[in-house]
């Protein structure tokens, strides 16, 4: 077991290192940020001073080693545009993204599981067919287009909900969040719904498949024969069995929610990491782009590491197969 964990850890470190090389060299080959940041009437001396200040006069491999050295000390360089450390900027924007992703996860569980349960219990009901058709749409509609339609309907036509920004925030347990104020909740509802649509569809499908399989099992027949009420069978016995896979998958999807939030944040002008990334790409703010990508790589590598280790604890075959390969 220890050997397995160490091997996986080494692999994870290797991946992060490899990605840092790819990301850094890739980003630094594209575009020249100096001309964007120095005012057009600056003379040659000003430009050279700026180049030296940004460290752009050194050879690229030296820039990379400085970057690597800094990265290991938690310093990913200063933003060209804001003049602040890139890591600090990203961490500053991270709570807004996490808040959005958690709200979306919450919505997808709260909406997806009951709908999936209903369509699994009554597969021939017209409502269930409607739910399933809806979930197919949820899979094939592009997220950004649904976001536009939500804005058009709820913000422009009906005027019920605001469509941009985070609204008033207040702090709960020392965390600044939109969920603490009514205005904030009104602001988060549309982006969270937009981000969760794909996951709602996923939750519906998983729950439905689970329920349909469980209803034919012996333990359900036995519970019926014992004379338990239908609601007790469903909410106690069936739910207990189907919740484990559903919750596992939904938890794993959390990472992709953070990835997808780039799109939603841009549409709803939500001040999170994703919007920061898009702004940074458009302004050629290389340190922020590199820092964001490195944080995402680290994040996903960590998720996968944890999942791998958990699986190997739950299912020893995973571990043994790995040793054989």
């Amino acid at each position: 077991m220890t050997v397995f964990v160490i091997r996986r850890l080494m692999q994870a470190i290797f991946v992060v290192f490899l990605m840092s090389v790819i990301v850094f060299f890739g980003v630094n080959v594209v575009g020249d940020p100096v001309y964007m940041l120095v005012s057009p009437d600056a003379d040659q001396a000003d430009i050279e001073a700026a180049i030296r200040r940004l460290g752009l006069d050194r050879p690229i491999w030296e820039q990379y080693f400085l970057f690597l050295k800094g990265a290991l000390q938690g310093n990913l360089g200063d933003s060209f545009v804001f003049g602040e450390p890139a890591l600090k900027l990203i961490l500053h924007h991270m709570p807004a993204t996490l808040e959005l992703a958690f709200s979306a996860l919450f919505l997808s569980i709260v909406l997806g599981i009951p709908l999936g349960l209903f369509s699994g219990l009554y597969p021939d009901n017209p409502v269930s067919k409607g739910i399933m058709a809806g979930s197919i749409l949820g899979f094939s509609l592009p997220t950004f287009w649904v976001g536009l339609m939500l804005i058009l309907l709820f913000a422009v036509e009906l005027g019920w909900l605001p469509s941009t920004g985070r609204g008033d925030t207040a702090s709960i347990f020392g965390i600044e969040t939109s969920l603490a104020t009514w205005d904030g909740i009104r602001h988060i509802f549309l982006p969270a719904l937009n981000l969760s649509l794909l996951k709602i569809s996923l939750a519906i499908r998983l729950t439905r498949a689970g329920v349909r399989e469980a209803m034919g099992q012996d333990y359900v027949k036995y519970a019926r024969a014992k004379g338990l009420s239908t609601s007790r069978i469903i909410f106690v016995h069936v739910m207990k069995n189907i919740m484990i896979p559903v919750v596992t998958v939904m938890g794993l999807e959390f990472g992709s929610l953070i990835g997808f939030s780039v799109v939603t944040e841009t549409i709803f002008a939500w001040p999170g990491m994703g919007k920061l990334l898009i702004d940074a790409i458009l302004q050629l703010d290389r340190p922020v782009v590199v820092a964001y990508l490195m944080i995402m790589v680290l994040f996903f590598v960590l998720i996968n590491l944890v999942v791998d280790i958990l699986y190997s604890i739950l299912d020893p075959r995973v571990r043994l197969q790995d040793q054989g390969a």
Binding site: G259, F260, L277, I303
Partner: peptide
């Protein structure tokens, strides 16, 4: 293990 959208981005 990375979402395709994120890889493309």
């Amino acid at each position: 293990s990375f979402p395709a959208t994120l890889v493309a981005l």
